[in-house]
Design a protein around this nucleic acid. Structure first.
Length: 564
RNA sequence: CGGGGCGUAGCGUAGCCUGGUAGCGCGCUUGGUUCGGGACCAAGAGGUCGGAGGUUCAAAUCCUCUCGCCCCGACCA
């Protein structure tokens, strides 16, 4: 493509609304333009990158036996009512047709794929199946943000596996993990596979592929030993705390108007690590008391795992009062009867702690778990940097990441509610065992930009860059350079090099700035000075290394050395 | 949904408090000089000041409503 005829609207100044680097550069480099919050038009460069990303995904999905489908984005509400998600999912775009029938825009396609499967898959002999598609998804996010990192309309590769049993699902799941690993490697991203919240019920498992970048919104706990898990699931040991000595029994002391842990820290001068935070939740209409170290935060995800259900809510102040005989701010575990107590593991083996006395404006000191109250010890808190790895004991780091993809063992969740059954070899009917697997394409491009930029612009991995090479003719009005550049452009095209020929009548400085900006990994420059010596330059954008080569060898060297 | 900020030419912005001709830089057009890291000179084009209503002789500016966008938080299949 000749730049003089291409639509690549680069911006010299940074649009005011763009904060994260990927957003800034994708706008400045003319890849995308915003249409509305969380909705972007992909222009020429973005679409060209997307075609390459899609191709990588197709090759790897096909390699594991995936079959590409294309399902509609516009779907009947009926299917979602059948699965029970019509009312439970609040980010779905819903609409009605002229006959007042409920429709929705696809945000994921478990229902639609299951609907096809149940009509057509009858026998174990047809299994396993892996069906995938690459098409837009629609989600009415409460807060779209960060350019292309959280969108309301985005491109997704989603696939669905259908197996006879759990062992089959394990195989399909592992195939996807392998395919995803190859996809993200080929896209040139730094990424991790991390354990994610599984939902617990039915032994479900899920994993996320995440790319570390500051602009992300997922937090992952990572250890050098290889342990990595989404923060909502990550387990960790708290570093030990030295407790106060002594074996005195609990002793009440007045704490007028001291409601929060922060209040107590100020009031007593004591460390929050020596305090017990008491929370009351209602589970299945019965109260459950949760105990955490004063400086720790409850993870509702982990609570769901501990309880085996995600149906629960915090108790109201009235419910807490009824249970404890005191108002919020003075609650504690000592003396409670007939109620389930769950304590975070970091309280195990501790002694002489401070907690509420179940009397207003009063707390207890010298409270020792196991002596003064009994509780089940579970992992209930959110891990933090500085915690210790449960595998190797070293310090964990909490890293901010972007979620690129997820892989999920669905099990029988959809096949049972939607009656998608097959016959096994004994002629018995049973529900299909399903998995679902997604990749967000915009996030691949954005994460690549986040991970590969400097002050001048992006340097995308070649596999996903819109062009392999930009050929810059420094002076188009010099007839020698012009004809040499034209010749080299034809030669590159003949060699099937994906080249952008900057043939514009611009000054060299403008061309170099634009070339640095738009993310093409290699630049070949023809300029007056070196032309006279018969030389061309090969410039690597990421390292800014310049290599002088004989003009007639340039294309061959490119091909053999840089574009292998 | 709660909190904060912002809507003035394609992009970045001044003007608003204290009402009175809408200004600047970049980009764009034309001519000329330049030409290896976002050139210079000259002449131009380009604006319903987000929208509606109100106050006023007069509104970008004051008031009311409304739409949109960004950020923080909540939420997140």
């Amino acid at each position: 493509m000749r730049w003089s005829q291409a639509f690549i609207p680069t911006l010299r100044e940074v649009p005011a609304d763009a904060e994260v680097p990927s957003h800034r550069f994708l706008l400045r480099a003319g890849y995308v333009r915003q249409v509305a919050a969380g909705i972007y038009a992909h222009l020429y460069l973005a679409h060209k990158s997307f075609l390459k990303i899609e191709q990588i995904i197709r090759e790897e999905m096909n390699r594991i036996g995936g079959q590409e489908f294309y399902l509609p984005a516009l779907n009947p509400g009926e299917l979602w009512k059948e699965s029970g998600r019509w009312d439970s999912v609040d980010v779905m775009f819903k609409l009605k047709d002229r006959g007042q029938h409920d429709l929705c825009l696809g945000m994921t396609h478990e229902e639609e794929m299951t609907n096809i499967a149940r009509g057509e898959l009858r026998s174990y002999k047809q299994l396993p199946q892996i069906w995938y598609q690459i098409q837009p998804k629609f989600r009415d996010e409460p807060r779209p943000k960060s350019g292309l990192l959280r969108l309301r309309q985005f491109m997704m590769k989603d696939s669905y596996s259908f197996d006879l049993d759990d062992a089959g699902l394990d195989v399909s799941y592992q195939k996807h993990v392998d395919a995803y690993t190859r996809i993200f490697e080929r896209c040139g991203l730094k990424f991790m596979y991390v354990e994610a919240y599984s939902g617990m019920m039915g032994g479900k498992v899920s994993g996320e592929f995440t790319a570390p970048t500051e602009a992300g919104e997922d937090s992952v706990a990572v250890c050098d030993c290889g342990y990595a898990a989404n923060l909502e699931k990550a387990e960790a040991k708290a570093p030990p705390v030295e407790d106060l000595p002594g074996d005195s029994p609990p002793e009440a002391f007045p704490t007028p108007a001291q409601k929060t842990i922060d209040d107590l820290v100020r009031f007593t001068g004591e460390s929050p690590t020596r305090m017990i935070k008491t929370l009351v939740y209602i589970v299945d209409s019965k109260p459950v008391v949760l105990l955490l170290r004063g400086d720790h935060t409850l993870s509702e995800t982990k609570l769901a795992i501990a309880l085996g259900t995600d149906v629960f809510r915090p108790a109201t102040p009235e419910e807490a009062l009824k249970l404890h005989g005191a108002n919020l701010g003075s609650l504690g575990p000592v003396g409670l009867k007939g109620v389930r107590l769950l304590a975070d593991r970091s309280l195990e083996g501790r002694r002489n702690m401070v907690t509420g006395a179940n009397r207003d404006d009063t707390h207890l000191r010298n409270v020792t778990p196991g002596r003064d109250f009994m509780a089940e010890f579970r992992d209930l808190r959110i891990a933090v940097t500085g915690d210790l790895c449960i595998r190797c004991g070293n310090h964990l780091r909490v890293v901010v990441t972007v979620e690129l993809g997820h892989v999920f063992k669905l099990g029988r969740r959809y096949s049972e509610t939607m009656h998608a059954n097959v016959l096994d070899s004994n002629g018995r009917e049973g529900p299909l065992v399903m998995g679902s697997y997604g990749i967000g394409l915009e996030r691949i491009l954005s994460a690549a930009a986040e991970q590969n930029h400097d002050k001048d612009g992006m340097f995308l991995p070649r596999a996903i860059a819109p062009f392999d090479v930009i050929l810059t003719a420094a002076n188009m009005d010099d007839s020698f350079i012009r004809s040499a550049a034209e010749k080299m452009y034809r030669e590159m095209q003949d060699q099937s090099i994906d080249v952008l020929f900057d043939d514009r009548a611009e000054r060299p400085g403008v061309k170099f700035k634009d070339a640095d900006l738009i993310g093409v990994p290699l630049r070949v420059t023809l300029g007056k000075r070196k032309y006279e010596q018969g030389l061309a330059e090969i410039f690597q954008r990421s390292t800014k290394q310049i290599e002088d080569v004989k003009m007639e060898d340039a294309v061959r060297i490119l091909k053999e050395k840089h574009l292998r």
